[in-house]
Computed example of a mutant assay.
Amino acid sequence: MPRRSAGVLLYRRTPGLQVLLGHMGGPFWSRRDEGAWSIPKGEYGDGEEPLAAARREFEEELGSPVPSTALVPLGELRAGAKVLTVWAAEGDLDADAVVSGTFPLEWPPRSGRVQHFPEVDRAAWFGLDEARSKLVTGQVPYLDRLRALLET
């Protein structure tokens, strides 16, 4: 059974459509930019509602609750080894004020030393074209789904 993740794609219209993405924290992503950003999301287990997990993970990764109560489903898709379910929410958030939770990782590898790294080391707003190159490949279809949703 694949692992499951849920997230929230926050967007704003100022003046063009922009989405809020988080740059993945930790040593593997520190020197990468293209393809190293993600929709705020995280895994959830059996018995947990995906929407509740999406809200929780947004707050853990960005340090702020989802600034909108109206969340619109963008559906699910397989992104790598996970099945990802995403909702869209219109709102605004100060990307410079993001304070992420951390995760433990043995670093350097096989050193026996565990360090804590932020889940998201920074956040930024991007227009959809730029977001397409910043976002990890498996999440790019959500940009198209958001555009289609807003055009209807």
Rank of each mutant, 00 (worst) to 15 (best):
E48C: 06
G127Y: 06
G91Q: 05
F117Y: 10
E106P: 04
D121W: 07
M1L: 12
T69K: 13
P108V: 08
T102F: 09
L21A: 02
G63C: 12
K82N: 13
W87T: 02
L93D: 00
G16L: 13
T152M: 09
W37F: 10
S38L: 12
L149I: 11
A36Q: 00
A95L: 08
L105D: 04
S38D: 07
D46K: 12
S68Q: 07
H116F: 13
D92W: 11
R31A: 14
R4A: 08
R113Y: 08
G7K: 00
E130T: 12
L93P: 01
S38E: 10
R110S: 14
R78L: 12
Q115F: 05
L20P: 00
A95M: 07
D121Y: 03
V99A: 14
R78D: 11
D129N: 10
L71E: 06
H116K: 12
V72A: 11
W29V: 03
A123V: 02
A97I: 11
L150M: 12
D46Y: 11
E49W: 08
V8C: 04
G47D: 09
A53Q: 02
L135W: 01
W87M: 05
G35V: 07
P73Q: 09
E34W: 09
R113I: 15
P40Q: 06
H23E: 01
V72C: 05
F28C: 03
G80R: 12
K82P: 00
E76Y: 06
A53E: 02
P15Y: 10
P73S: 15
V86E: 01
F28D: 14
G22R: 00
D94V: 07
G63M: 11
D129I: 12
Q115L: 15
